[in-house]
Design a protein around this nucleic acid. Sequence first.
DNA 1: ACAATACGCAGGTAAAAGCCTGCATGTCAA
DNA 2: TTGACATGCAGGCTTTTACCTGCGTATTGT
Lengths: 106, 106
Amino acid sequence: MDADKVFKALSDSTRRMLLDRLYEQNGQTLGQLCQDVGMARQSATQHLEILEAANLVTAVRRGREKLHFINPVPLHEVYERWVQKFERRRLGLLLDLKNELEGDPK
Amino acid sequence: MDADKVFKALSDSTRRMLLDRLYEQNGQTLGQLCQDVGMARQSATQHLEILEAANLVTAVRRGREKLHFINPVPLHEVYERWVQKFERRRLGLLLDLKNELEGDPK
DNA sequence: ACAATACGCAGGTAAAAGCCTGCATGTCAA
DNA sequence: TTGACATGCAGGCTTTTACCTGCGTATTGT
């Protein structure tokens, strides 16, 4: 997983919206996804290219259409690397701050 | 949670490294965190400000020092909103693509 | 064949991000 | 009190990002 590409891809609200749309209906075409995004087709296309580069979306050509599918694997890996790790020590991390705020020595 | 700020904060490798460092040792000072990042102190400071603005890090002043603590809450919320959701349908989403690749009609 | 459809390619612009240097301020310890 | 230390503030530079417009190519249905 290229963490940089994945997080950068997720760092834009338009792209997160596109993912949500694909979640609602997987396998949409470029044209469908470019509708109602409030920007030119080419702009939305560029966002989808970034999602593809991050492997969050996989596109398949069928005739003159391009179908888009969510790839949930990178999100799973983000969870394993970035959330689970911090989750395990979640309460402990919060306690560090609490103790400092209360002036407790370590 | 401000998803935009959180994802943007996580989209830079320097900032992810800073989080990892804080995970190793919570409560470090600005000076400590600015060491060995391969950039000027002020640059690292700006990264920490972004992490603070995203609530991923909470800073506390103690005398002339500024101590930094991880706040695991935003990461937890990212998980709930962005990972868990896709995780539930993970296999189904992958199947959509597999079927399309194999030319199966829906 | 040909017109409509779905998409790709190639720039161009403005704003944001990331990095820097220089100087100012506040705190501690001797 | 005064020098060393830890951090804050301000501005400038360069690259990246997000958006656009205009035109080219491939596919489809009639």
